[in-house]
Write a protein that binds this DNA or RNA. Structure first.
Lengths: 352, 352
DNA sequence: CTGAAAGCGCTTACAG
DNA sequence: CTGAAAGCGCTTACAG
């Protein structure tokens, strides 16, 4: 072994004489005195290699700093070492959290993450996703809501025989291809909390009915109120679009009601922030005049004044689970994750 | 031509008899009655093809829905059709905006975007990035601040002969490899605005000195105050960490000063949000008691109450420029983008 | 348990 | 302007 000091650089350039540039399977084969096929077997952890041979080859690979070329492997395998992240979601923090979670699972696996935003309202978006997946010969795709809720897309991917995992608030299709957060249970927790504080006049800013999560959240919430015999009349339920602006508008309507609610559950943090603005514009204080709860625990939540009580969605965990499922389809479907309430400063007992 | 209806699926499966599955270069060559090399020339827009031949081949490719396999091309080219996005940045919106911008430029080019977060404080992060870039044979990498400011990384990539573009607030190294936003000019605008409102007692929450942007923003700001003969004594300048919490702490110190500033320039929105919280905790109103300006125009800014006046950074444009530069290194270096003030509701004239 | 041949879908280098 | 041969770095299918 050479004793000269090495610069702090990747050890791709072998110190073993005989070749320059990153080592290839041929270099390893020659060095080990075996065929490249045997090296290939070691790379792919085939059991059809004598232990002794395997160790010799593996040792050499380590020593030389050899890593198989993913591109060449992909070409031969007819499948790239790439995972696609397909989404149509305005919430940047959600995207980045999923990315980080997926990357957690991918680390060291040789797979990389390719991002693919799309327009699920556009007419040819399914075709676009299929083209992307097929052209890149993706190993699999992670579908985020609301794209994950699109049955037509799932069917199209099925036909193309590409692996995918759907992330959402309810299991759709095969459980093995789904990562679920139990939004309904979390909404139950929100309702129990508000009722426990003494609220009876409660307003709900629901999400857009095109999103499955909107149904889950509203359903869990309504369930509890009903159980407690608390009315949730139609005028106290308004549908927003998961956006800040819609939150301002919806809360404005709720707070202008003759029987003004003492608490509002906004089905995501964006709309909750809008509710703050609507309240402040009317000269109302949070939480003295109106308690507000959000959903997501986006970074926004902790930065509002007063800090927003909300539901913490384990988004990074979901990203991790999704990627893990793609790497090992044989793995058991993960149990649904239940998000929980993060109590901060936006709720109090009703004034009346 | 067949007249049967086609399902709304990508036209990868050719209707021309003779082969199944996505068409390959060989199929096109056979169909066109030319060699695969000629098809290759058409793919790569080589001038060494007779116009007639080119049109025949190109027409066939279109008709069949042929798209060259990026993996195979990559292997032969010894360079993947992938652009890496390397970052170490907690601001999700920043990342997603850059991603979207880069994707804008990449659309239709056949290149895809691979994300690679890293820990620039970690000891072996340069090695990690080099390994990533080299292993994937990336066509190029986009470096975001603060990673982009790391000279050692730039040198390492240089040695490996990989293309990269550095995104930042000041041009470092070769201009052709840099996408710059003129943060200094924007900070000048902020200062002029506050001075114009009549403020004289002004506080500055600077960014961490490890970030180049922190210097630029503070410098541009200080410059204007000096020009107007307005003092910026040391106690009115505090260094934050670009985080919400540091903003709370720094603003708390500024607002506790005997000669309390009537305006605060927080060098990013996160810290500005922290300044709101610090003010509110002390019972101060924004902007009546203290005006606050941020920087970035993150989604947070418009969601705070009152809506934050801040500097709108053209992040998506920068992502687009960076990717475009990577696709066409011959292109002229883009002119620095100057961000501008987005005036909202967080500033007013000083009370005194 | 191991290997020689052929192939994945494209390009380079060399001829003509 | 066009093509036959060899090769990119790996794997599959087939032998032994």
């Amino acid at each position: 072994m050479s004793t000269r000091r090495r610069a702090r650089e990747p050890a791709e350039e072998s110190e073993v004489a005989g070749f320059t540039g990153p080592a290839t399977i041929n270099d390893i084969a020659r060095l080990a005195g075996v065929s490249k096929k045997t090296v290939s077997r070691v790379i792919n952890a085939s059991p059809l290699v004598r232990a002794e041979t395997r160790e010799k080859v593996a040792g050499l690979m380590r020593q030389v700093g050899y890593v198989p070329d993913p591109q060449a492997r992909g070409l031969a395998f007819r499948r790239a070492f790439l995972i696609g992240l397909v989404y149509d979601n305005p919430n940047a923090q959600y995207i980045v959290n999923v990315q980080n979670g997926a990357l957690d699972a991918l680390r060291g696996s040789g797979f990389e993450l390719v991002v693919h935003p799309c327009e699920s309202r556009s007419d040819d978006f399914i075709e676009g996703v299929c083209r992307f997946v097929q052209r890149q010969k993706l190993h699999g795709a992670i579908l985020l809501p609301p794209v994950s809720e699109n049955e037509a897309l799932a069917e199209a991917l099925e036909r193309l025989d590409v692996r995918y995992v759907r992330v959402g608030s309810v299991p759709f299709g095969a459980a093995a291809r789904t990562v679920v957060s139990n939004d309904r249970a979390a909404a139950v927790e929100v309702a129990e909390y508000l009722v426990g504080l003494g609220h009876r006049a409660i307003g709900l800013i629901a999400g857009p009915h095109s999103h499955r999560s909107a149904h889950e959240r509203a359903a869990g919430f309504g369930e509890v109120l009903a159980r407690h015999g608390i009315e949730l009349p139609p005028e106290r339920v308004v549908e927003g679009g998961y956006t800040f602006e819609s939150g301002v508008a919806c809360a404005g309507r709720l707070l202008a009601l003759a029987s003004r609610p003492t608490a509002i559950f906004a089905c995501n943090d964006e709309m909750a922030a809008g509710a703050y603005t609507a309240a402040y514009r009317m000269g109302l204080r949070v939480p003295e005049d109106v308690s507000i709860v959000g959903f997501d625990d986006s970074p926004l939540a902790a930065r509002l004044w007063p800090a927003l009580t909300t539901v913490r969605l384990p988004i990074r965990d979901m990203g991790r689970q999704a990627a893990a499922l793609l790497l090992d389809p044989a793995a058991a479907a993960p149990a649904p994750l239940t998000p929980h309430l993060a109590v901060r400063d936006s709720c109090g007992p009703p004034a009346r």
